[in-house]
């Protein structure tokens, strides 16, 4: 038998709590180590779910961007909003399928790229006066839908209690 990641993290946690923390003389040192222990606790509870969490967001973003691209709303827009819609249409056309990468770093980069596109769109469309039933209004609903689902995912993911400033 060899220790897995959970065993190692638990061992580090025990060492820090039982061996290092009691020997720290300064308030500041104890404060910092307490923050470290908090972070460690967070990692221990989630390290094995990082990939699943990212993949869920990746799939959601990919679906939203595909539906936005399919709406062909660029023609209804002008200026930077039209530019970002064309960018989304082009990105979806050149990378159809949206298969999520297996490697965490690649998955993270892919999520980051899709988030950036959606962020640009939201920044330009959030307060715009859009006719009901228009392709642009459809795109905004799609973007808002992602926001709501991501809030729920983040709420579940963070769950670290009340962080006080």
């Amino acid at each position: 038998m060899r220790p897995d990641v959970s065993d190692i993290l638990s061992g580090i946690q025990r060492t820090l709590m039982e061996e290092i923390l009691p020997d720290l003389a300064s308030d500041r040192g104890r404060e910092r180590l307490t923050s470290v222990l908090f972070l460690l606790q967070h990692c221990m509870a989630r390290w094995d779910r990082v990939g699943g969490f990212l993949k869920e967001e990746h799939d959601d973003l990919s679906g939203v961007l595909e539906r936005i691209a399919a709406a062909r709303a660029a023609g209804e827009a002008t200026g930077p909003l039209a530019d970002i819609l064309r960018e989304i249409e082009s990105a979806v056309a050149t990378a159809p399928g949206n298969e999520a990468p297996d490697a965490i770093e690649e998955l993270r980069a892919s999520v980051r790229e899709r988030r950036a596109m959606l962020a640009s769109l939201l920044g330009r469309i959030v307060g715009a006066d859009l006719p009901d039933g228009s392709a642009l209004a459809h795109c905004r609903r799609e973007a808002h839908g992602y926001v709501g689902r991501q809030i729920n995912r983040d709420r579940e993911w963070v769950q670290v209690g009340e962080i006080v400033w």
Binding site: R115, A119, S120, L122, R124, I125, V126, G127, Y146, I151
Partner: peptide, 10 residues
């Protein structure tokens, strides 16, 4: 990028 923050600036 954080989509909600971009939306908020808009």
């Amino acid at each position: 990028a954080e989509p909600i923050i971009d939306a908020a600036f808009g």
